[in-house]
Write a protein that binds this DNA or RNA. Structure first.
Length: 437
RNA sequence: CGGAGCGUAGCUCAGCCUGGUAGAGCGCUAGCUUUGGGAGCUAGAUGUCGGGGGUUCGAAUCCUCUCGCUCCGACCA
């Protein structure tokens, strides 16, 4: 992509409404623009990041055995009256009427709809287990949206729902999502610590929040130092017993502010980490909370009907964009992890119009694109400082700087955004290195 | 939902107290110069001063209603 044609409205100054660093950087980097309180437009750079995150989330969900579906954003209130939540949910739910005066709502979550899908289509224990997920937009009419996309009213969420015959199998489904979440967040370049949590209004007896440590996090969190170093599980066999992995992670102290047990934490001594955290995922096991009132049942091997055990598993996808920036930035701008970067490489032509520079850029641009690297080529006729500043701001992992002096020597400068380390390489060496990443 | 603020050019903001018909910097357009970390000069374009109502000869400025946004708190992926 040529930057001269790319829709990238970067800002030199920070708009007043943005208070936290991720919000400021998302506005300055031209990723989003606010439409209304807690509702955002995603411009090309932001949309690309969102798509990359979605892809990682999707791969890990699929890998753990979940299947993607798409449910409606607008739901009939009838199902919610059946589950008993229509009255319970409160003003956070955006309620609307259609032209026939029927009660509808913009879905804040989808337990009712997915349970309805299940009971209408699955009749036998032989069809279990099932885990259905979707990635799409939800709306919760928050009293006070803030922090940009970190607490929007409209937000992109991955929500999965598991259905099992009994508690033990349902716990296994829970464990599968637990492990998938560890892997997902690690792939996104985040340290997300699972912490025991209240299940809140969704209900249930087992729940964990996944908390990303970041200085600007909303809540204080405490955990054992070892959790920070713990690598996400690799080569997972999702059919095998995952409980040992879960025990390994939950055996170490980890608690949010509300759940913090100061006495227990004291015992950790120097191993206690106290930090700030952002909730990026939340998993619940809630048994028959919805299958009972909504009569979601299967016929068991004994011929008797039994209501299924369920769990639900959420990842705040749009929030993750903010969380990743909170955890990965410096004074110059965003520093994207490779896995979610909107482009792999930023190619800077310091002297547009100079035959040698233009030719060198074209060579590198074409070669990288041939190798399916995403390259943002800054071909604008602007000063070097502007280009460096913009490129640092948008935080692409690699920068290739093509200037007249270097090109005369047959080299370009390759800069790693995260470390600032620069090296001079021949065109071929630079291309080779960027192709290997 | 309680408390506190703010709406003036694309962005950051001044002007408001003490009423006289709108400004700066950046950005944008054109030209010249410049060219490895947000350049310089010249010329130019850009505003229902959030909206309605009122006071006044005259309102960005005073009064009033309203809409929007932000921050602190309680609540939440």
């Amino acid at each position: 992509m040529r930057l001269s044609r790319f829709f990238l409205p970067t800002l030199k100054e920070t708009p007043t409404e943005a208070q936290i660093v991720s919000h400021r950087l998302m506005l300055r980097a031209g990723m989003v623009r606010q439409h209304a309180a807690g509702i955002y437009n995603w411009l090309p750079l932001g949309a690309r990041v969102l798509q990359n995150i979605i892809q990682v989330v999707r791969e890990e969900q699929d890998g753990a055995g979940a299947q993607e579906i798409i449910m409606p954003t607008i739901q009939s209130a009838d199902l919610w009256k059946e589950s008993g939540r229509y009255d319970a949910y409160g003003p956070e739910m955006l309620r609307i009427k259609d032209r026939h005066e029927r009660d509808m709502l913009y879905g804040p979550t989808h337990e009712e709809v997915v349970t309805d899908i299940f009971r209408n289509n699955i009749k036998s224990y032989r069809d279990l287990p099932k885990n259905l997920y979707q990635i799409h937009w939800k709306f919760r009419d928050e009293v006070r949206p803030r922090f940009g996309v970190m607490r929007g009213r409209e937000f992109l969420m991955k929500d999965a729902y598991s259905f099992d015959l009994d508690y033990a199998r349902s716990k296994h489904a829970y464990n599968q999502m637990f492990v998938a979440y560890l892997r997902t967040f690690a792939r996104l370049g985040l340290k997300a610590i699972p912490m025991k949590a209240d299940s809140g209004p969704i209900g249930g007896d087992l729940s964990h929040e996944f908390i990303v440590l970041a200085d600007t996090g909303e809540s204080a969190v405490f955990c054992h130092k070892a959790l920070l170093e713990k690598p996400a599980p690799d080569n997972v066999d999702y059919e095998a017993d995952l409980q040992p992995i879960i025990d390994e992670w939950t055996g170490l102290y980890a608690a949010t502010d509300e759940k913090h047990d100061a006495a227990a934490a004291e015992k950790l001594g120097a191993d206690l980490v106290s930090a700030r955290g952002i909730e990026v995922g939340h998993i619940f096991h809630f048994g028959k909370k919805y299958s009972d009132p909504m009569k979601a049942s299967v016929i068991g091997s004994d011929g008797n009907s039994t209501n299924v055990f369920m769990g639900s598993y959420g990842i705040g996808v749009s929030r993750l964009v903010g969380a990743i920036i909170e955890a990965n930035h410096d004074e110059h701008g965003i520093v994207w992890p490779d896995s979610v970067a909107p482009f792999d490489v930023g190619l800077i032509n310091l002297k547009v119009g100079d035959a040698a520079c233009d030719a060198a850029c074209k060579t590198i641009y074409d070669a990288l694109r041939l190798k399916r690297r995403d390259v943002l080529y800054d071909d604008r006729d602007d000063r070097a400082g502007v280009k460096f500043a913009d490129m640092d701001l948008i935080g692409l992992p690699w920068q290739v700087v093509v200037g007249p002096k270097a090109v005369a020597k047959g080299v370009v400068e390759l800069k790693r955004r995260a470390t600032g380390v620069k090296e001079e390489l021949s065109f071929e060496a630079a291309i080779a290195k960027l192709t290997l990443i």
